[in-house]
């Protein structure tokens, strides 16, 4: 385990914890949070109880990337969710940087990174109050089989098989920490507007028809934009709908 960031270019003042195995980096972040006074990345080579949104499992073979970024002192609760887009942009830049491929990656609302149209990475944020934990999972070497995801969900893909790039989790982290620090500084200094613009410029299916599945309803409409709170704006025959949470399916 290393807690001493010696990596060249690693953002000053940010912690770096590397674990071989843990239940989930989000859970580890919750345990360590009380003693953290500065931002910290926690990476694990193996997660034994990795989790996705609302109790979904997240497959995590060795070689894939799993890390959680803890911000001990995030913006007010209402703005915490905007970090979804900040991290998505950092992840996008990291994927481009480690593969040299500028045209292969896109973003799916709110924070999935797609590679050749398949799902490469996912981000889940936990805001228990007083801190924000941003969990990031990337299929560097292996993607779950198509039968392990829900019907209608995007095909899972891995970086190695799609691009030929073999990237170690710790190398990936060193780049992601730097790109995140850059976007985070921009967010703090300039607010959500530049984050929103940058996100929209890499968005998949902008102007096309999407379906958002919410607990109570399904909304199908043309993906128009993001609003100033980061909500997905769909134009439906009944008018514009703003979506804050839901699963997005491409039509």
């Amino acid at each position: 385990m290393s807690t001493d960031p010696r990596t060249e270019g690693w953002p000053a003042g940010t912690g770096r914890v590397i674990l071989d195995e843990v239940d989930s980096t989000l859970d580890e972040a919750a345990r360590r949070a009380p003693e953290l006074t500065a931002p910290c990345w926690i990476l694990a080579h193996v997660q034994t109880a990795a989790r996705g949104r609302r109790g979904r499992s997240w497959a995590m073979p060795r070689g894939n990337f799993a890390a959680t970024m803890v911000l001990p002192d995030p913006a007010p609760a209402r703005h915490a969710a905007l970090r979804s887009f900040v991290m998505a942009l950092a992840l996008y830049d990291t994927c481009v940087a480690v593969t040299g491929r500028h045209d292969a990656f896109t973003l799916k609302w709110p924070n999935d990174v797609l590679l050749n149209g398949g799902k490469l990475a996912g981000i889940l944020l936990e805001n228990p109050g007083g801190r924000l934990s941003i969990g990031v999972g990337v299929n560097l070497v292996e993607a779950p089989g198509g039968d392990e995801v829900e019907a209608g969900a995007l095909r899972p893909v891995a970086l190695a098989s799609e691009t030929g790039a073999l990237v170690l989790p710790e190398e990936f982290l060193d780049t992601l920490a730097v790109t995140y620090a850059g976007w985070e500084a921009r967010f703090v200094a300039e607010g959500f507007a530049p984050i929103r613009d940058a996100w929209l410029s890499q968005a998949a299916r902008l102007g096309e028809t999407l379906t958002a599945k919410l607990p109570r309803e399904e909304i199908t409409g043309v993906f128009e934009t993001l609003d100033s709170d980061g909500q997905l704006i769909l134009r439906t025959p009944q008018g514009q709908r703003a979506i804050a949470a839901g699963d997005i399916f491409f039509g």
Partner: peptide, 27 residues
Amino acid sequence: EAMKTMNQIPAPRAGKITRIVVADGDA
């Protein structure tokens, strides 16, 4: 939940829950 962020809403003060206005899955 908003933008895949799970925001835990804390009790602003101690007391007894007398009513839950929302249902699971409500927007």
